[in-house]
């Protein structure tokens, strides 16, 4: 009951938030929603199923280009958005094949290679992607007379989809899929020994993780109204990794906390790009050295400590 109240208050705050934000801050919060969606995907692939993906920016990019290019062909946003996810998901399933054979560092390198290759394709195949200049003039959607063209309306659309993405990830994690993902991640031999197909679930872990990233990409393109390959480099993949590692891998709250810190942190601290990259790299090392569970552990401790306090007052 208290939990529902808590989440209700949070959602209410997010609903009234735009009234208090300037244009730029509104954009940053909107961007955070997009990045959380992608990070949720990576968390499913890496956090739960333990399959290293350092090419989530590719999946993100495929979603974004699907949106940008098909919108230009006059397709409807509402049709393209699921397609962005599906295209990225199919690509993810293909990328999952190396994961059947390779683990950890090999998979890390293979997926880095994939990211570098997709980046080159985006840069070079200008007939399709527009090359280094990318795709511009991307429009925002509307339903009937309700238009999402203004920043504030698009914010609300993103908010709704952001909440849906979180609910969907909670659903998946608590389903038998989620349990099988964790099983494959924890002990593949035991999983196979109990009839859990590593083939199915590894590909699925990549496909589902890529689906979320693709949808994120589909939302990203109209937010910026312009996309170019720079937004989908290996370093962006690294940022997604940083998000879930800082937040907490294999936890629902992980990507949310992580994305908030990674996207909003630099804006709040008003740091130069290189400066915050140093800080985040350092945090990555420190988290691995001292707090492998991520910042969500801090939340857990708070949650434990607060009831104890109330109890002691009695």
């Amino acid at each position: 009951m208290i939990r529902w109240l808590f989440w209700g208050i949070i959602v209410a705050i997010l609903c009234v938030l735009p009234r208090f934000l300037g244009d730029y801050t509104l954009y940053v919060v909107s961007l955070t929603y997009v990045y959380v969606t992608v990070a949720i995907g990576l968390n499913l692939t890496l956090g739960y199923a333990n399959q290293v993906s350092l090419c989530h920016a590719s999946f993100f990019g495929i979603g974004a280009y699907t949106m940008g290019l098909l919108l230009a062909q006059g397709w409807s946003f509402w049709l393209i958005l699921p397609l962005s996810g599906i295209f990225a998901g199919l690509f993810g399933a293909v990328i999952g094949f190396p994961a059947l054979k390779w683990k950890d560092h090999y998979l890390a390198l293979i997926t880095i290679a994939i990211n570098i290759i997709t980046f080159f394709v985006m840069m070079q195949e200008s007939w399709l992607t527009g090359g280094p200049t990318g795709v511009s003039g991307i429009t925002r959607p509307s339903i009937g007379s309700l238009s999402f063209t203004s920043d504030i309306n698009y914010y609300y659309l993103l908010l709704v989809l952001f909440i849906l993405a979180i609910l969907a990830s909670i659903w998946i994690v608590n389903s038998k899929w989620g349990r099988a993902f964790r099983a494959i991640g924890l002990n593949e031999l035991a999983a196979r020994g109990h009839g859990i197909s590593s083939f199915n679930y590894k590909l699925l872990a990549f496909a589902v993780g890529a689906f979320f990233a693709g949808v994120g990409g589909g939302l990203f393109a109209p937010l910026l109204r312009y996309i170019s390959p720079d937004a989908f480099t290996f370093f962006i993949s690294l940022e997604f990794l940083i998000m879930i590692v800082i937040g907490g891998m294999g936890r629902i709250e992980g990507p949310i906390i992580g994305a908030i810190i990674v996207v909003m942190g630099p804006e709040v601290l008003r740091m130069a790009e290189a400066a915050y990259l140093i800080v985040y790299s350092l945090i990555l090392i420190l988290v691995m050295l001292f707090m492998r569970g991520g910042l969500v552990i801090v939340l857990d401790r708070l949650r434990e400590a607060i009831p104890a306090r109330i109890g002691s007052r009695r």
Partner: peptide, 10 residues
């Protein structure tokens, strides 16, 4: 892998 990626960035 994660920590050395961090180191490289740092």
């Amino acid at each position: 892998v994660i920590a050395t990626l961090g180191l490289s960035g740092f």
